[in-house]
Each structure stands twice: as C-alpha cells, then as structure tokens.
C-alpha cells in the first residue's frame, strides 16, 4: 500500500490507483508535513474529519469487533468465551463454505468476462457514427437505475413462467423447465441478470474511454493501411487498457459480494447450489452463528485484500504500457 505513494509510482498512476489516492497518500504526509506545513491550509484536514470519523465508526470499529469475536463462541448476545482458532479450523472443513467460495469465484470470473466483452462491443458501436446514438445510449443505461432486487424478481418470474411457456410453444426441449429449478443451470440465470444489470455502468466507462482517444491516431492508422478490425485491436484496445483494468477490478470486486440478485432469483437454491459467500456470512446473523461466520468473513476479507493488491500491481504495469 505505502509504495503507491512513492513519487515514482505516482507518475505512472492510472485512474484506478488515483481513485485510491486519498487513503493511500494519507499516512506518509506526516513525513513530508514539515516541508509543507506552511503551504497547506488546515481547512483541508478539517474536510477529512467527517469521513474519517464516519469511516472509523461505521467500518473500522465493527470490522475489528468482528475479527475479535471470530475467536469466541459469541452468538449475537449473552455470554461468550474465547475458543481460539476453533472457528477457523471449522470453516476450512465446512463443505458448505468451500462450495460457496467455489460458486462465488466461478460466478465472478464468468460475469466479469461476459460483462466486459459485451459492454466493450456495445461501447464501440455506440461511439461510432450511427443514427440515434444518444437515444440508444439512454436506452442501454436504463437497467442501471432499477434496483437489483426488483430486477431479480422480474427475471425470476420470466425464468419460472414466461421462458418455459415460450420454450414449450416453440419446442425448445431443454428450456421447457425453469432453469432456476435446475441445480446445474441456476447459476447461469444469476450471471445473465447480473450482467444485464451491470453492463450499463461498464458501458459508460468504456464510452468515456473511447471518446478520450483523439481522432488523429485513427487517421494515422488508416493512412498506414489498417482495416477497422486491426484499428480496434492495435489502436483502440491499447489506448483504453486503463479503462479495461478499472472495469475488471470494480466488476470483480462487486461480483464477489453478490447478494441481492441471488436472493431475488434463487435464494441460494435449488438446494445450496447458488449460495454466495455474502449469503453464507449473513446466515451467521439469522442462524445464531455469529462468531463462526465472522471467522468466515475475516478469511474473505483477507482474500479480498490479496486480490486487490495483485490487481493494483497489474494496474501499474498496464499503466506503464499505456
């Protein structure tokens, strides 16, 4: 984390790491503060105070409490005692938790790929000189403004009733039964709905990226004899590489936390085939398994941090290329 703040890294910083700048640069300022004290108005520190206080109270303190309780047998109220790392041992031998990790990571990878491919192709189309461009863009952004749980319930009805009825009428055998009721296929419905919901946001970022490419480079490429596909591959893609990385990182992080769409579609079923990590953790509150699921949450937290660090590293490499 601290390396991000070093001057060398900050020159090649992409938008993704710039996004994190407020938190990552905060600690080292104390080292440089002697030099800068006179030029920086105190008021800037005051601006930080409200969010710092809120962040500490609402995020850091509960997180630390959660980690603390993961070493106890606390069930949410009443007496408790320390039980060491028993919870952690139990987590690693729990097939329900292991399968939720497998499902969630598989789902996140597939969804990230699908969302980014579709959104990128749509963005290329929507930034080309086509008719009704603005109106089309507006249409594609609509799913973004609808709440996830609402979308999920609408699709739940479509998958359970409309799609089987349609498949029966047309005669498509495999789809005549609801895919939500099939433990092997239910995850596909979650991928589809999540993609449908998150393509607009990804699309907007890609459109912004494509619009930031100056027209001259395409002219130059055309003069060199590059056909449209070659232009897309050798000019457009490298120039929006930073945007691809942002979309992949943000998307992957969101999909790992998948919750509401799954609740609305399958509620983790059929059986336990589509239980995400977040859903499993949440059962700790409803099922009196608080400390145990806190151990699970702590492990998930560590994994998330590791992934973020790896992605940040890749980001910096990509940024240097661009």
């Amino acid at each position: 984390m601290t390396t991000t703040a070093s001057p060398a890294a900050s020159t090649g910083r992409t938008a993704a790491s710039a996004d994190r700048a407020p938190t990552t640069t905060a600690p080292p300022t104390s080292g440089r503060s002697a030099r800068r004290r006179q030029s920086v108005d105190r008021i800037y520190y005051l601006f930080l105070v409200p969010s710092l206080v809120l962040f500490t109270l609402a995020i850091t303190v509960p997180a630390l409490l959660g980690i603390f309780y993961s070493f106890t047998n606390f069930i949410g109220f009443g007496d408790w005692e320390f039980i060491g790392i028993t919870n952690y041992i139990a987590v690693f031998s729990d097939p329900a938790i292991l399968s939720s990790y497998l499902f969630t990571f598989g789902f996140a990878i597939v969804t990230v790929l699908l969302v980014n491919v579709v959104a990128f192709l749509l963005a290329v189309g929507l930034t080309a000189q086509i008719k009704a461009k603005t109106a089309l863009r507006a249409v594609f952004v609509i799913p973004m403004v609808i709440s996830g749980i609402v979308i999920a319930y609408v699709f739940n009805f479509l998958f359970s009733n409309s799609l089987p009825a349609f498949a029966t009428a047309v005669g498509i055998g495999p789809l005549q039964e609801s895919i939500l009721a099939n433990p092997d296929l239910a995850w596909i419905s979650i991928v589809i709905v999540t993609a449908w919901q998150s393509i607009p946001g990804t699309l907007l970022i890609y459109i912004a990226g494509l619009l930031s490419i100056p027209g001259e480079v395409y002219e130059a490429a055309a003069i060199d004899g590059a056909k449209p596909f070659r232009q897309l591959w050798s000019v457009t893609l490298p120039l929006v590489a930073g945007y691809v990385v942002i979309n992949v990182i943000l998307g992957f992080k969101n999909y790992l936390n998948a919750y509401e769409v799954i609740v609305g579609l399958t509620n983790g079923g059929p059986g336990t085939s589509t239980r995400s990590i977040a859903m499993t953790i949440f059962t700790g509150f409803t099922g009196g398994d608080y400390a145990y699921q806190m151990a699970n949450a702590t492990i998930f937290f560590v994994i998330a941090i590791v992934i973020s660090l790896i992605q940040l590293r890749i980001t910096r490499g990509k940024a240097a290329l661009a």
């Binding site: 097939p95 329900a96 009721a181 433990p183 983790g268 079923g269 059929p270 059986g271 336990t272 085939s273 239980r275 059962t283 700790g284 409803t286 099922g287 009196g288 398994d289 145990y292 699921q293």
Partner: peptide, 30 residues
C-alpha cells in the same frame, strides 16, 4: 435444526432428485 444449517435447502434438493443418503449424511456432518 439450528438455522445455520440450511436444512430446508437440503430437503428441497432431495425432493427434486438429490441422493437421499448423501444429503442426509451431509446433515449429520453439519
């Protein structure tokens, strides 16, 4: 069964075709 074990989900999968012995064994292990 305490709520932290997804009993109803296991039963649902049995009703829709999952193996009886294997699923009940899983309940035992849980």
């Amino acid at each position: 069964v305490p709520l932290s074990i997804p009993t109803d989900n296991y039963i649902q999968s049995i009703a829709t075709g999952a193996d009886v012995d294997a699923t009940l064994r899983r309940l035992d292990a849980d």
